[in-house]
Simulated assay, not measured.
Amino acid sequence: MEPVKILIEQLREIARASIELLPQVAVAIVVILLTVGMSKFVKYVARRVFARTKLRTSLKELFTLLLSIFVWILGLMVAAVIVFPGLTPSSILAGLGIGSVAIGFAFKDVFENFLAGIIILFRREMRIGDFIECGNIEGQVDHIAIRESHIRQTDGQLIIVPNSILFKNPVTVRTDLDVRRITIICGVAYDVDVDEARDVIRDAVASCDSVVQDNKPIEIFAQEFAESSINFEVTWWAGSQPLDVRASRDQVVSRVKRALDTAGIEIPFPYRTLTFKEPLK
């Protein structure tokens, strides 16, 4: 019976200690409830303040989240000290430091994406609505979150990309400027006057309303002697959106083809000469 008595005595001690802690637990619960209210108040004030700034929406959400987390950490620390008077803020911070190291090793990829997301949010070169290319990923930036970014492809599909990929790899921002240079190759026959063909092509490109000509010259260079034509490299500037590029290329190709036909300038197709060792019967 002696072990039973010891167990009953230990249970009594635990119950007595729990009853003695009830006031502290009640105060800690009040502190947590106040923390909930304070967190909501801080979020409200932060949104009102950030609404007057020119920060990105995602960056505003990040700062609001960090302020809320800070309030919760303070509130939980105060509640812990009330329930366990032996604790001190320094010991709690030390415990948090050790715990954060362990969590950091366990969730390395999560924290890597989190830090990469913060850095990306501070970038001014990649904005919501920009068309980007990163490796085999190409599309419009729909959303930049803390851990991931949403890229909408031109065919409507959504790609969710971890931020670490966009941070570690080169990213081409196709809409960083309002205009983009476009190049096509146009060939003319060998018996055509090169200068005349160049002038006809230039006039045809200049007549397109999709071509930007303000301080952006139309450049036409004879590029090479191809198998059946002299090839011109035709370069001009148009809007940087993918649809603008496609529409401008379509318009330029149509106008150049029509202008060359009108001028009687041939756009040759490959010629092949067949020779036979033996006479044909």
Rank of each mutant, 00 (worst) to 15 (best):
K5P: 04
L7S: 14
L7P: 04
L7R: 09
I14F: 15
A17N: 13
I19P: 00
E20C: 00
E20H: 00
Q24S: 15
A26M: 10
V30C: 12
I32C: 12
L33C: 10
L33I: 13
L34E: 03
V49P: 03
T53E: 04
R56L: 03
L59Q: 13
F70W: 06
W72A: 13
I73C: 10
I73F: 09
M77Q: 12
S90A: 14
L93C: 02
A94D: 12
G97R: 01
I103Q: 06
G104D: 01
I120N: 08
L121P: 02
L121E: 06
R124A: 08
M126F: 01
R127D: 14
N136E: 12
I137A: 03
E138C: 09
G139W: 07
V141Y: 07
H143R: 15
I144H: 04
R147H: 11
S149R: 02
Q153K: 15
D155W: 01
G156Y: 02
P162H: 04
F167E: 14
V171M: 12
V173T: 09
I184H: 04
Y190R: 02
Y190K: 04
D191W: 05
D193R: 08
A197E: 02
R198D: 11
V200Y: 03
V200E: 04
I201H: 08
V211Y: 10
P217Q: 09
E224C: 00
A226Q: 08
E227K: 14
E233L: 07
V234Q: 00
T235D: 05
W236L: 03
G239D: 03
P242I: 01
R246F: 06
V252G: 11
V253F: 09
R258Y: 10
D261F: 10
T262D: 14
I265G: 00
R272E: 06
T273I: 15
E278P: 02
